[in-house]
């Protein structure tokens, strides 16, 4: 149960990027999990060759991922969005990107499990008889911090508000003198930058292989849809629900069922209430 709550904080961190890109910008970036895994491998490389802390690496790499995201968005915009044929071909485009990233990683680093080392991995604290592993606690706290940061970005800063505006009324935004394409580039970049940190958290929690991204497609989209497409608070709530549901499922029925939970929730959420828990 506690593990589920902590897992929820981490899932929130993983899903923020999708929430932003898919929920607010309406871009079906199905390649997001691959960017997260890319973040994990960045953390792994820096950790194994320079002994740098994984989460610190994740933070340091956010500008790199931001630029990467901006480039991918420009390519996407130029090829699909401007021609007005974004939905289906764009989806296929990101599906291809997902495979390119995944296979590039397995060509470069092989399909062995990779992990990072840090002083706090393996330790735990005791809170009223419940042992809490730092391995889970640290990612959860960072995840919560990221959620808060993104919330503040969207509600307090000019660019954040512009991102909210672009999701509602593009024409009105243009009349206000802001360029929707530029705003979307920024938002997409921020979403991918979040993947860098999320990837670092992921590899702190568990070892990673290039194909781990496939497990996270369902989780991310389940959380985003359940949370109400772009609602940051909703993302956090949905992430915690999913985390708890998965850990309960894996305690009572065995770990092989836990992956089906997210996809099952996703299917039900899509079929019954596509607007999500905290939908607009």
């Amino acid at each position: 149960m506690v593990a589920g709550l902590l897992l929820g904080g981490f899932y929130a961190a993983v899903s923020l990027g999708v929430s932003l890109i898919f929920g607010l910008l309406d871009i079906a970036n199905i390649a997001q999990p691959a960017f997260v895994i890319l973040g994990s491998y960045a953390a792994y490389v820096m950790n194994s060759s320079f002994g740098l802390d994984a989460i610190l690496t994740g933070l340091l790499f956010t500008p790199v991922f931001y630029v990467l995201g901006a480039v991918v968005y420009r390519l996407y915009y130029g090829s699909f969005e401007r021609r007005g044929e974004e939905s289906l071909r764009g989806l296929v485009f990101f599906f291809g990107v997902l495979f390119i990233i995944e296979v590039s990683l397995s060509l470069k680093y092989g399909v062995d499990y990779r992990l990072v080392e840090a002083a706090y991995i393996g330790k735990s604290i005791d809170l009223g008889g419940v042992g809490i592993a730092f391995r889970l606690l640290v990612p959860c706290l960072v995840g919560l911090a990221m959620t808060l940061a993104l919330h503040l970005f969207l509600s307090r800063t000019f660019y954040g508000r512009a991102v909210m505006a672009v999701s509602q009324d593009r024409l009105a935004l243009r009349l206000m003198g802001a360029d929707p394409v530029r705003i979307k580039t920024i938002a997409f970049g921020v979403g991918i930058a979040a993947a860098s940190l999320a990837g670092a958290l992921l590899i702190t929690i568990a070892p990673v292989v290039p194909s781990t991204d496939r497990d996270y497609i369902g989780r991310m989209f389940a959380i985003t849809v359940l949370g109400g497409m772009g609602s940051i608070a909703g993302t956090l709530v949905a992430a915690v629900i999913l985390g708890v549901a998965e850990s309960l499922m894996s305690t009572f029925f065995g770990p092989s069922w836990s992956l089906a939970v997210s996809f099952g929730i996703l299917l039900v959420a899509l079929a019954v209430r596509p607007a999500g828990l905290l939908g607009r």
Partner: peptide, 17 residues
């Protein structure tokens, strides 16, 4: 109920379930 992107994601979910 599901069109476009949502349909695609649902089919992916179906496969995993």
């Amino acid at each position: 109920r599901l069109r476009g992107v949502f349909f695609s994601i649902a089919t992916l979910a179906l496969s995993i379930v």
